[in-house]
Structure formats: structure tokens, C-alpha cells
Design a protein around this nucleic acid. Structure first.
Lengths: 348, 348
DNA sequence: ATTAGCACTCCAATCTGGTGAGTGCTAACA
DNA sequence: TGTTAGCACTCACCAGATTGGAGTGCTAAT
């Protein structure tokens, strides 16, 4: 740790400054530190040290003759080395969420809200992205003379359906055969596995209905693909207004907008999934580190949750740079652990 | 019109005051009116008239020695008698929306956005509410040994599905019979028409599967009911911040929250559908007239759109009391007319 | 009935001086 | 040599005081 230019005393002082600033949100002066810490030093000494810390880039002065506030680099150091997460209990979340909700989207919305209420920051959560869905069951039915219904059940009992037009009616016997054909050949296959060979084989066997088979396969692909489109649920966006450094700087509106037009948030997700943070699965972006330029005055903490077999989603918390990192990260970690249990139990 | 205590001259002056205030947002003084209008009167005369208008409750002074601003009553008079709607063209909307979207929810979201961009106010739009859905087709299928799939197609090719657990496997022949039974008895019925008699009949005919039939019917009811749950799409909520009288008064956060937690907006919908405004189908709430207390400093304009046979939805625009009513109302009227055409053409 | 004129009110913007928190520097100290 | 006390200095912030301008209400003249 020495190579940062920080001896133990400086580290302690830096820690004290950041802790204090996180609590108060005000620039912190030398006298405060001199009393606040247990290292018995006069304010003058602290001033000297602070001067060093400033030169090293860990803290900065908003203006002459004001106290110091942490710089991005300071926050980063804090997050990486100084802070220690609380191990807060959030056991009640599970019950709460399950009690109040039924469907996946509602659960996610609830989770976002709960997290927002708990942390007092803005939150987002994405629907889990399933890239390797397999066909479990498939069914064609006559709806009326011009349309047939295609129902696809995917692994995990996710049901999709499409109505497609037909040129000529198909009698029940034919339909039964087509259903058999499709099920025997497609069951257990993922979308990537349905290749040209399979398609050709199917078409051949279908005889005069080969064109129809083509349409059905298109519908299947579309139905599966539908799931790819990422839903993003947000909550607590207005919490942003609680932090003057964000709300008064004029770009509060831009920030809120990003939450309304959720598409801006997508880059958070992709970034998060790409980085795949070695150990904890939690990623912290401070200020300019964030992939979303709009949020350069914020800190963003993201986590990946996983429901097994590469089915992943992203949770994010967006707040001011003087975020309560300890609380946020323990919250996220906890949530991450609980999430698959919760989602597994809900109907999809 | 005379019984309002307003002669022609007072009406003209009131009109001028409101028009001016809508443009500038500043209290308007007598001198301004004296120049602005074509009735050649000195500021002193205007002052006398304004004094009368204030006594009648149409305008008010924010403080002594400031100009006048319209009161709620003033706005109301303006909306009811004075203003004349522009007949602006919004023909491009149709193409734009169709080009960029496929599914119903996306269309609605787009419409909300377009309206928000056009008007610079916050907007909301609900999914169409279908109260008289009829069953068009129904299908049970074996998915695996523990579950069967129930698919319901409703009038208008709206497809719903449920997976329900079963106690013992059902062979294909049985299944075929059940399907026949259900379809012959339920096709063409709305949920209200499926009464105890029908249910009893079905159960009797189903024999050993009567319990299953009960579950299926529950699933059908649930599937249809699902459609009732109202989706509300909003856009441009951050436009609120553009109007100081809304954003600075401290309750901007509350307002924005109402848009985030869409459930508050529901009362707008019910109110709107209940009132069923005689002629235009457009409803204007000024200030305290609004059903949502949070919006007592706003004006809210709602419209009902209809897709035939009692399938209705609500569009709403929320802005400051000094809203550009003319523009808003012509926009809404236009949109209302176009909406069914747009939605009809989209896949559901 | 309309208007000019005038005194009055009140907001908003600008300036003023005082206060306090905080710094940097220097010199004394252990 | 590291630490500390002391002091001058800076700057944001607050509370009054001052001013200018926009606007009103009233009265007297047209």
C-alpha cells in the first residue's frame, strides 16, 4: 500500500475525511479531523498532512479557505482499500416480495423499489437474459380458416405464442401430423441448434406444407427472440432530487430523463456483463468512470445476478458520489444471493 | 354570457390578460394590455376594469403592486368560452408511429412520447380496456407429466396462456375429448356469460375429469382477467421541471413520483371514463378540479379514445395551469381520431 | 365615461459590512 | 526533525440598507 504515497497516518486521515464527508456532505476541515480521530494531533499537523493528500490527488478544495472533499481518486481508494462492508440483515425482503407479487415483472419492479427505499438512491434492475433457451414443447392449432396458432413452451415453462396466417385450411389429421413432426424434431433444441439441416429435413418431411413449416419456424425464432428484448425496471429516480449536488447542478433533468428513457441505461448492463468482475460480481463506477456520460457526477454500483446456466441480469444503484458505499454494497451482495431463490419460486 | 357579469369589453380584456400570461408566465400589468389590444384605452381605464375583474374572481394579484394573473375561474372561463382551437396538422404521427413500432405496448409508449415532445408537457396513456372479451378458441395440451398447458384465444386474436399442474397424466384421446367439450360449450361466450350453469354442465360431461375442468376454468378466468390490469405508459415527466411554478414549489418531487409510481394516475383514468364528457370526449381539470390531489397546481387534460365496442383507453396531459390549452386540445383531438386506425394495424 | 397625474407599495437586484470557518505560513518547541 | 501555537489572510454566507422599476389606486380634470 506504500506505493500510493500514503503512510499509515495519511491513510487514517483520508479515511476520517471521507467518512465524515459521507455523513455530512459538507467540506471537512482540519480541526474536525483533529478532534474526530483518536490519533492525537493538532489541527496544524492535520493541515500539513491534508496539504500532502491534496497534492497526491486524493482530496480537493472546492475553493480556498474551505474544507476538503474527497476526489474521485479518493473515493476509489476508499472503496478499494478502506471501507468494510456491513453485514446487514435483509432477510425480510424475500417474504415481502413473494407475498406481494406473482409475476416476474412485478417481482423485479418490487425488488427495484425495495432497494430504492432501503438505500435512498435510484435503482434499476433488468429482466434476466436467457441466451440458451431450449424448446420443450410446440403446438399448432386451427384458430379459424385464415389463421393458425403457434404455441412454444421453452425450458422453464416460459410460454410464447404467435398467430400466423395460412393460405388454405388444414384439416385436423394433417395438423396432428405436423405437430408430431415438429415435436419429435425440435424438442430439446435451442435456437442456435435449429440449423439449416434441421429445417431442410423438416420441410422435406412436411411435403406440401413445407412453406407453412417455414413460417412456423420463423414464428418460433421470433417468439424465442422476443425474450431477448431487455426489460429495465427502475425505481426511486426521484431520490436524485434529495441530493443537492445532483439536483441543483441543472442536469438533474437529464439524469431523470435517463431513467425515464430507459434505453440509456442499457450501456450499464452491457458494460456490467462484459467486465464480469472477478471476485464479488459487484462493480463500482465513480464519477467519470461510469459508462453513461450523463452520470459523470454520480457513482454507480452494479451487480450481476445469476439464475444458473448463464441466465443473467443486472442490478444497478445510482446515487451521488458521496454514496453510502458500505450499505449499498452489502445490500447488493445480499440481494444477489437471495434473488435466484425468489425468482425461482414465482410463476413466469 | 352576460350573466357572468362580463360585458364585451371585460371579456376582451380578460382574454388579453390570459393570452399574455400564457405566453410569458409573468403577471401582466395594465400598461401592457393598453398597448397589446386594439381597443384604444389608456392604462388607467384598464386598471379600473381589471379591478372589477378581480372582484369578480377571474384574475388575482400575487401581491400588491404586481400585475394580475388568471385565477382558476379565469382559466375555466377561457377554456369554456374564449379559446379557439387551432386545427394543427399532425398527420405525420401515424406514419412515424407505425414505422418505428410493432407491438401494442410500444405503440402506446411511442404515442405518449410523441405527445410529450409535441406539447412539452408530461403525458400518459393507458392500454385499451376490454371489458367484453369473448372466448374464440380454447386448447389444452400435455406439456409433461405434471403439467398441462391451457391456451385461450379471445376475440380479436388476443392470446393468453396458463400452465396448470395435474394430478395424473391424461392420454391423448381423453385430451381430445376435453378440448372438444370445452370448445363446443365455451366458444363465443364472454367471461360474464360463463355462469354456474355452464360450469355444472361441463363438469358433469367431463366425468372423472370434472376437477380438472374446474381448474381449467379458473385458469381461463384468470387469463381473461389479466387483461384488465391496466398498463399506464408515461412520457416527458421531466418536462415538469421546465415550469418554475411547478418545479420550484418543492412538490416537484411528489409530482415526478406520481409518474414513477403510476398507480396514482389510475384515478385519472376512472374519473375520465366515468364522466364521459358529452360532446368532445375531452375533459379539462384546472387546479383543484383535478382528481389527483398531488396535481392541484397543475392543469390536467384527458381524452378517451375508443377502438369500437366499448374498448376504451385514456390519454392525459399534465402541465402547469398556464398550459397552452389550444395546442393541447387540438393535439388530443387529432390524436384521438387517429388512434384507432393506428392500433388496428398493429399486431397485438 | 375616460384619462392624466401623482403618491404609494412592493419586489428584486445590488451593495455593504460583519462573522466564522478554514487555510498557509512561520517560528517556537520537544 | 516532527509537532504545535499563533497569526494573517481568504472566502462564503448572512443580514440590513439602498435603489430602481413596475404596477396599482385614487383624485381631479377633460
Amino acid at each position: 500500500m506504500e506505493e500510493n504515497g500514503l503512510d499509515e497516518r495519511k491513510t487514517k486521515i483520508l479515511n476520517a475525511i471521507i467518512k465524515n464527508y459521507l455523513e455530512t456532505g459538507e467540506p471537512v476541515g482540519s480541526r474536525t479531523i483533529s478532534k474526530y480521530t483518536d490519533l492525537n494531533l493538532s489541527s496544524a499537523t492535520i493541515r500539513n498532512e491534508m496539504s500532502d493528500l491534496e497534492e497526491l490527488g486524493y482530496i480537493l478544495q472546492p475553493h480556498t479557505s474551505a474544507g476538503r472533499i474527497p476526489s474521485d481518486k479518493g473515493y476509489r481508494f476508499y472503496v478499494d482499500h478502506l471501507m468494510q462492508e456491513k453485514d446487514k440483515e435483509v432477510a425480510d425482503m424475500k417474504e415481502f416480495v413473494i407475498e406481494h407479487t406473482e409475476k416476474m415483472d412485478q417481482v423485479l419492479q418490487q425488488v427495484a423499489k425495495l432497494l430504492a427505499v432501503n438505500t435512498n438512491y435510484a435503482t434499476m434492475i433488468t429482466s434476466p437474459q436467457t441466451h440458451h433457451n431450449k424448446v420443450k414443447f410446440l403446438q399448432l392449432s386451427n384458430v379459424d380458416n385464415e389463421n393458425i396458432l403457434v404455441v412454444v413452451v421453452l425450458e422453464g415453462n416460459l410460454v410464447k405464442n404467435k398467430i400466423i396466417p395460412i393460405e388454405a385450411p388444414i384439416d385436423n389429421e394433417q395438423m396432428l401430423k405436423l405437430n408430431m413432426l415438429l415435436n419429435t424434431n425440435l424438442t430439446g433444441l435451442s435456437i442456435e441448434q435449429i440449423n439449416l439441416g434441421t429445417i431442410a429435413l423438416l420441410k422435406e418431411k412436411a411435403g406440401i406444407h413445407s412453406k407453412l413449416i417455414g413460417n412456423v419456424l420463423d414464428a418460433v425464432a421470433e417468439a424465442i427472440g422476443e425474450d431477448e428484448d431487455l426489460e429495465i425496471y427502475t425505481s426511486g429516480a426521484t431520490n436524485i432530487l434529495k441530493y443537492p449536488e445532483l439536483s441543483s447542478s441543472g442536469n438533474a433533468s437529464e439524469l431523470l430523463n435517463a431513467f425515464e428513457e430507459k434505453n440509456q441505461l442499457v450501456s450499464l448492463v452491457t458494460e456490467n456483463l462484459a467486465e464480469d468482475t472477478e471476485n464479488t460480481g459487484i462493480q463500482v463506477y465513480i464519477g467519470n468512470e461510469t459508462p453513461i456520460q450523463t452520470m459523470k457526477d454520480c457513482s454507480v454500483v452494479t451487480a450481476t445476478y445469476e439464475l444458473g446456466e448463464g441466465v443473467k441480469g443486472t442490478i444497478g444503484i445510482i446515487g451521488p458520489k458521496r454514496m453510502d458505499y458500505e450499505n449499498v454494497m452489502s445490500n447488493l451482495k445480499n440481494l444477489k444471493a437471495q434473488l435466484d431463490g425468489i425468482l425461482d419460486r414465482t410463476k413466469k
